[in-house]
């Protein structure tokens, strides 16, 4: 069994840092062999997740911690994004119905829709210690 490799980044919750976050995740994804197409997907999904943390969990407070851990094992890359901000229940977030959204030109909810579309798995949990955790998986081989 291959050893799991972890790459970690702890970073303040400022939108100014989104570019650094994207560069970190894209760098790891490229290093472990993802093609540019998938690197772009991973980078965008992580940006969307961290933007949600900054704007919704931390309400744009700039000095809170966002923890990113990228775990590599033999068949997949897993990104775990952790914050100590306000929790939300993913079940309460309705996936936008595309037809309705197109008809009404509505803004919002696009981030989670993108995360679920771009990644192979997306889960959100509130941990026993009260931290929120978004976990996203991309398999090395496209499973679809």
């Amino acid at each position: 069994m291959n050893k799991i490799t972890d790459y970690k980044l702890k970073i303040p919750s400022k939108t100014d840092n989104l570019e650094l976050i994207r560069n970190f995740v894209a760098g790891v994804a490229r290093k472990v062999g993802f093609k540019e197409d998938d690197v772009s997907k991973i980078e965008l999904a992580v940006d969307e997740a961290c933007t949600n943390v900054i704007e919704h969990a931390y309400k744009n407070e700039k000095d809170k911690d966002i923890d990113l851990a990228v775990k590599i094992d033999f068949n997949k890359l897993t990104i775990v994004i952790t914050d100590r901000g306000k929790s939300f229940d993913m079940k309460d977030i309705k996936m936008p119905e595309m037809e309705k959204y197109l008809a009404e030109l509505r803004v919002g909810g696009l981030g989670i829709y993108l995360m679920k579309t771009l990644m192979d798995e997306v889960d959100y949990v509130v941990r026993p210690d009260g931290k929120n955790e978004v976990r996203m998986v991309k398999f090395f081989l496209d499973q679809s």
């Binding site: 994207r22 965008l44 030109l105 509505r106 919002g108 696009l110 993108l114």
Partner: peptide, 16 residues
């Protein structure tokens, strides 16, 4: 080089 939903939201916000 790059756009996220925050960027797309700007177009959505004004189009109507």
């Amino acid at each position: 080089d790059y756009i996220s939903s925050a960027g797309l939201g700007v177009f959505m916000g004004f189009i109507e």
